[in-house]
Write a protein that binds this DNA or RNA. Structure first.
Lengths: 222, 222
DNA sequence: CTATGTAAGCTTACAGCGTAACCCTGATTC
DNA sequence: GAATCAGGGTTACGCTGTAAGCTTACATAG
């Protein structure tokens, strides 16, 4: 032991807001946003909780930051090409990204998001629709309709209490809670899931195409 | 003072789960779900926090309860009549109810809801679609698409950081944060809101009709 | 009438949360 | 060499949900 090793080696490269946010995303993916505390995040970074406040104003600031990080993963719609293809890709990409970070949708829809990635994301979306011939007002409505589907569908899927591969088993276990006189149709649906004539999978594309087709008709007739 | 008044009059009629839940809904409406603590709720009912645990298993149980109470306010779709009218009314009613209880949508989409009101609500919805000629699988997809819109739209609306009447003013204040070279389209949209050519209002009915029209086509062609 | 059991309240206590206020130390700059 | 300061750490406060145990009021039985 040449140089008496310090009991606690001093941090070689200091923390940064960037590192804190990246660690927060990873940790939230692993343990859930509900378990993400400042102390736990500090621990992950080999640092005390209060040290994080040197790099972020407070926890809300961190939440804003990780939301924007997640949004930056979404593929931007291309501007000037086929709007329908672009919007379909955008929505599908968003859905995939939000499934990768199951806590993110909740944060997005429960706070004002004006981070740079979010602004870019929205700007590109409006641009895509405008250049396709939609008015600003119509672009606004179209964008809102598509994103309602993205967020609403994703939340319902994430919230669904069973995994797809266990739907049939879960439906069977749930049947006793569905008396035929009170919930006849719910029971009928469950039966179909049990006997395999309906896989019970919710289809993101189904609702998305309804909306995109509708928008196309609006564009043509308007 | 005939009968020496007790310093703390004993509760004449005892609490009940029902009363606790109703008080919780009212209180959440008033102070927000984030400020709804067991202590605050107890205070509202003239009782210590721990006494609530005689009527509810824990806080999650209370949250489940108030979600189901809110859901019970939604108009059920009629079964056997015009499905499109029924589904439109159902969605509109749900949207209105969820706006009355701004905290509720978040709870609905973030937990498994299997309370009696929720089961009735879903059963009636599937029933409405089934009797209209949709298959069980298609009813499932249709219901899911409509509710994605209801939840997604409502959350986006509730989350929007400005009140409708201040859109124009807010857009003006926000313009400096939107450099024209980075966010040209977002800026263009804001301009239209400022000069009044677009009111900036998001229209629940717009997306809903896109979906319902699409479903009608699916029903006819299928 | 009193005795007893129970439902429904209260009290205390604990671990975990975000964060305000302050301290310490090593590196950089004049 | 002194001064500044960025980036760590420490302590403490008021809040949270809730476990454990205590108390009181009322219903019913004897």
């Amino acid at each position: 032991m040449a140089k008496k090793p310090k009991a606690r080696a001093k941090r070689r490269t200091p923390l940064s807001r960037e590192k804190v946010l990246r660690a927060a995303v990873t940790l939230a993916d692993e343990i859930g946003i509900g378990s993400l505390s400042m102390r736990r995040l500090g621990e992950e970074l080999g640092v005390e909780a209060m040290s994080l406040y040197k790099h972020a104003a407070n926890k809300d600031d961190i939440l804003d930051g990780i939301v924007d990080l997640v949004v930056s993963e979404i593929q931007l719609p291309t501007i000037g090409g086929d709007w329908k293809v672009a919007m379909r890709r955008r929505a599908t990409s968003a859905h995939e990204v939000l499934l990768r970070h199951p806590w993110a949708t909740m944060l997005i829809v429960s706070r004002a998001n004006v981070g740079p990635a979010m602004l870019r994301y929205v700007d590109a979306t409006i641009g895509c629709l405008r250049e396709a011939g939609f008015s600003y007002a119509m672009s606004d409505h179209a964008w809102n309709a598509v994103d309602s589907h993205v967020y609403g569908f994703t939340l319902q899927k994430l919230n669904f209490p069973f995994q797809p591969e266990e739907y049939a088993v879960a439906a069977k276990a749930f049947l006793p809670k569905l008396p035929a006189d009170r919930y006849p149709y719910l029971r009928g649906l469950s039966q179909q899931v049990i006997d395999g004539s309906h896989d019970g999978l919710h289809d993101f594309q189904f609702g998305l195409e309804l909306i995109l087709d509708g928008l196309e008709r609006v564009l043509r007739s308007g």
